[in-house]
Simulated scan of single mutants.
Amino acid sequence: MTFSNAQRQAMAWAAIAAAALLLLWLLAPVLMPFLVAAVLAYALHPAVEALARRRVPRMVAVGLVEAGAILALLGLLLLMVPILSKELPLLREQIPMLAARLNETLAPWLAEYGIDLKLDIASIKAFVLKYLDANLEDWLATALSSARIGGSFVLAIAGNAVLVPVVLFYLLMDWPRVVDRARQAVPPRFRPAVEGFVAECDAVLGQYLRGQLLVMALLAIYYSVGLALFGFDLAVPIGVFTGLAMFIPYLGFGLGLVLALLAGVLEFQSLYALVSVAVVYGSGQVVESLFLTPRLVGERIGMHPIMVIFALLAFGHLFGFIGVLVALPVSALLVVAVRRMRVAYLGSRLYLG
């Protein structure tokens, strides 16, 4: 059986693609920090190029941009400090009181239905004093003990925390050369089509990132103002954390909701906390899901609001949490591909007959 030149070329490309996918699957644990660094380099290289155009030495520009990104991440994590420093003492004081109140109100109500439930207040107090009244030395001892138990996991996290910034630095330093080598790897006859496709994808992803950042900023302001209007002492750190964490769909909202509920229950100790959090976060989720993300992100990447909602649900169903995380950027690339396939189809013999 003989094959034509086109068939042989198609089989060769299919074999190369299969070998690349197999290699990616086998090396997935090793490649993860490199992929994370590559994604960060793609997002940060415009800032480096902007500084380089202003005659800032490239090494200095890379160092400034990477340091800014690390400081932004640390700032997001440090938002938890005032929350924990205020909530932990309140937890230590209020948990035994809340348990006693539940015994007084919930236990008689359950007894009417034949359910005998009574909380052991002494055990709860001992637990709280043991784990929430520990000093820094005790926390360090617990952390070191956990590190010995799960040493490989801790070492992997520590290794990635060091490896990702190093790889990111070298990628940002060599980004123009990396792009040029990737371009040279494309066969010359395919280069104009591939370059046009990549340029369109780059424009769409840039629009996505700008839209997502705008959504995060608006939500941070909304949640901070909403919680402040209801009298929350920690309105600003909780609201800003929730807004910035919305970059991770659902998980960021869930963490902010839990923090707000905890702060409200400990501060007000009444149904007022639950009602206020429900109003602020319920309305915020509706506005974000039905207006902000579809309008500010979906329209920027050329997707109808219904398609944005469908993409989030479909990718979440197929790939879980990772699918939700990459749903919109991957959908943006698919929009570009489908748009080009439609143009090719409308000009094909199959359509024109």
Results as ranks from 00 to 15, higher is better:
residue 30 V to G: 00
residue 259 L to G: 01
residue 256 G to D: 09
residue 109 W to D: 06
residue 309 I to Y: 03
residue 315 F to R: 04
residue 319 F to S: 03
residue 35 L to Y: 05
residue 212 Q to H: 06
residue 317 H to F: 11
residue 116 D to G: 07
residue 124 I to G: 07
residue 8 R to P: 00
residue 90 L to S: 06
residue 272 Y to R: 14
residue 65 V to N: 04
residue 290 L to S: 08
residue 33 P to R: 06
residue 298 G to N: 07
residue 231 G to E: 07
residue 262 L to K: 05
residue 212 Q to R: 12
residue 52 A to R: 14
residue 182 A to N: 04
residue 33 P to N: 04
residue 152 S to K: 11
residue 161 A to V: 14
residue 53 R to W: 00
residue 285 Q to R: 09
residue 322 I to Q: 02
residue 140 L to Y: 08
residue 166 V to R: 05
residue 243 G to D: 03
residue 153 F to S: 13
residue 206 G to M: 05
residue 156 A to L: 11
residue 154 V to D: 00
residue 23 L to C: 11
residue 108 P to N: 10
residue 68 G to W: 01
residue 66 E to W: 08
residue 191 R to T: 08
residue 98 L to I: 12
residue 299 E to S: 12
residue 98 L to D: 01
residue 73 L to V: 14
residue 311 A to W: 00
residue 264 G to Q: 08
residue 350 L to R: 09
residue 171 L to S: 05
residue 164 V to L: 03
residue 296 L to G: 02
residue 293 T to F: 06
residue 186 V to N: 04
residue 93 E to K: 08
residue 145 S to D: 11
residue 274 L to Q: 00
residue 86 K to S: 14
residue 316 G to C: 05
residue 163 L to A: 13
residue 4 S to A: 08
residue 18 A to M: 10
residue 323 G to V: 07
residue 224 S to P: 02
residue 283 S to Y: 01
residue 228 A to N: 03
residue 328 L to G: 04
residue 67 A to Q: 06
residue 116 D to M: 07
residue 265 V to Y: 12
residue 313 L to R: 00
residue 299 E to H: 13
residue 140 L to D: 07
residue 36 V to A: 10
residue 334 L to S: 04
